[in-house]
Amino acid sequence: MKIDISISDNVNRQFKDKMGGQELKNGFIIDPDIGTNNAKCIYIEFPGCLELYHFGSTQFKEPIEMHTTNPIDSDWLLIHINLSKFSQQKKVGDDTISFQRNLPIGILFCGPGLEMNTLIPPGIETEVLSIRFNKEFIISYLADTRKSIDINRHIAYEDIDDVLSTALVHILNTMNNKLSCHAHLLNFLDHFFDKISKHQRPRGIDKLHPEDLQRIMEVSSLLRNPLDDNTPSLEELSKQAHMGITKFKESFKLVFGLAPLQYRKRIRMEYAREELMKNKNSVTELSYKLGYSHPSNFTAAFKRFFGRLPSSF
């Protein structure tokens, strides 16, 4: 099934036209010939040109080829969150790690000029939360940070950290209480935009071809396992992305807000912080798991990144 989605229009209506079965007061149930679980697709409209879409957990019975666009002159932006990924875990040796750290998608920010192709295979559990809002929302709610957030950026990616994960759970659990849901949604957006505002901006690249975007997302998976000792070189990564090194670095920065090896370092340091906060590993254990020759080297790298010693967590 091929679906064309324009972010500049109501997303619920576009999906309903293609895969809607039973109509609901605030959405629809996916046609059972298309998806399983009688999955509900719920739409909530909040004040301030803010919309929330929850597409319930389902397995599609045929491949879904989705072509998502947003006109360059669009005043609408979208945040797309793959919930089916953020709850998964994976065994790496004797360790269980959060799988969203290793495979896109976590959170995608979709702005004007976006063109993106997505293939959802049949039989794969899929659950999505999307947040659509007008540029006026940024002006109204985030006036102080508006200049540091590039609202004309066509694509950006962020991982789901513990704060965002908790906020998402609260959003999903309060969808039948519009006021509470709105509060949790604003909390999520506040933290998300704070992270986006810290993204580095690339030089000479402001938009990616859909195929280049797909390659960048695929290649990023090679950097996302914090316990992998074999980090590919920039040459290897750029070759796999079918790009020159400079274009690859700047294209990667456009999406992830960091150069590839800086992003790799962030993945490892954030993994270490989470392990320390959950008391799963000692500093010494973590240093060797992450490949440091001595705990003091890990401690120094950790302090440079967070400005705090590992022992403070």
Rank of each mutant, 00 (worst) to 15 (best):
K2Q: 10
S6M: 06
S8M: 03
V11S: 09
D17R: 13
K18V: 11
G20I: 10
K25N: 11
N26P: 02
I29C: 01
I30Q: 04
Y43A: 00
I44F: 05
F46A: 02
L52I: 04
F55Y: 15
T58H: 09
E65I: 11
M66C: 10
T68K: 10
T69R: 06
T69F: 08
I72A: 13
S74T: 08
S74L: 06
S74F: 02
L83S: 07
S87Q: 13
Q88A: 13
K90S: 10
K90Q: 14
K91I: 09
G93M: 05
F99I: 06
G106H: 12
I107V: 15
G111C: 07
L114R: 07
P122F: 03
P122G: 00
I124L: 05
I124G: 00
E125P: 06
T126I: 13
I139V: 09
L142Y: 15
A143L: 06
A143G: 01
T145F: 08
T145I: 15
K147L: 09
K147Y: 08
S148R: 14
Y157W: 12
E158T: 04
E158P: 00
V163I: 13
L164M: 15
T174I: 00
K178G: 01
L179Y: 11
H184T: 00
L185V: 03
L186G: 08
I196R: 11
S197Y: 06
R203L: 13
K207S: 15
P210N: 03
L213D: 02
M217I: 11
S221R: 15
S221M: 15
L222H: 13
R224F: 01
N225H: 05
L227E: 09
D228H: 08
N230K: 14
P232S: 11
S233A: 08
E235P: 02
E235W: 10
S238K: 06
Q240M: 14
M243Q: 14
T246R: 12
F252G: 02
K253Y: 07
L254T: 04
L258M: 09
Q262A: 09
Q262H: 06
R266C: 02
R266M: 12
M269K: 08
Y271M: 05
E274H: 12
E275P: 00
L276E: 01
V283N: 07
E285V: 04
H294F: 12
S296T: 14
N297D: 07
A300G: 00
S312N: 06
